[in-house]
Design a protein around this nucleic acid. Sequence first.
DNA 1: CCTTGACCTTCCAGTAACTGGAACCTATGT
DNA 2: ACATAGGTTCCAGTTACTGGAAGGTCAAGG
Lengths: 131, 131
Amino acid sequence: MNIGEVAAETGITSKSIRYYESIGLIPEAHRTGGGYRQYSDKDVQILHFVRRARNLGFTVGEVEELLSLYRDRGRASADVREIAIKHITDLDKKVAELEGMRATLTHLVEKCHGDDRPDCPILDDLARADG
Amino acid sequence: MNIGEVAAETGITSKSIRYYESIGLIPEAHRTGGGYRQYSDKDVQILHFVRRARNLGFTVGEVEELLSLYRDRGRASADVREIAIKHITDLDKKVAELEGMRATLTHLVEKCHGDDRPDCPILDDLARADG
DNA sequence: CCTTGACCTTCCAGTAACTGGAACCTATGT
DNA sequence: ACATAGGTTCCAGTTACTGGAAGGTCAAGG
């Protein structure tokens, strides 16, 4: 398979695949005589792995870790579990942050009449003198 | 006030304040004879505005919009409200995304015994052949 | 055989919103 | 005079790509 087919199959763009190769996340692809990258089913599987992990919000660095644990047959599942759990707490932190923002903002929007009068509690609050 | 004091007061780092100036988000600061930036109370107020808006998750571009609406005395509050509401839906989208990830990952972690055995459902799922 | 068009190649630059660090200048206290 | 704590500019790096230019490859059609 060449890179475009792999892109269609995995949902990762060709650009990103080349990028992943360039940073060493995935090994260098084999090349045809003309210089085109060629991917085996196993290569494609690894890219699926990468996409799924990225879709779960793992950073590329974390994906690298997960891949190396995946390749290491003797690894302890506890290691993987630890990474995953840490990631869950990261996600929780982000969610809490966003929900805090949302609550404040919703509150402000409710106070704002939102017509053509210039008076706006949202701006007033952002510009308030304290803290 | 010089930049360090303003940083302490607003919670924005000196670096960021200079950065905001460099991109034109805030006007150029006045300078002392020695070239130090000097900030008036009004300058500080604007930086508070910026920090609060950033803390609410507005992008710098959005903060720019909000600032210009703030400066424009004749602006309609509906404009501000619209920006805020759009931002709330953005936040909701992000929260939903993160919670989806969290759910999947939590599910996987629960299936993973997490001891020193190499068998790990988390990796197995990431590496699964389908979709 | 030649062309056309789709696909591939590399490389450079840009994105968002800063952060780190080098090299140097200014202000203040002893 | 000097130490030290601030300030200054400027360049590079971060994350995870994306866009675009300039050019090479491949398969099909005339």
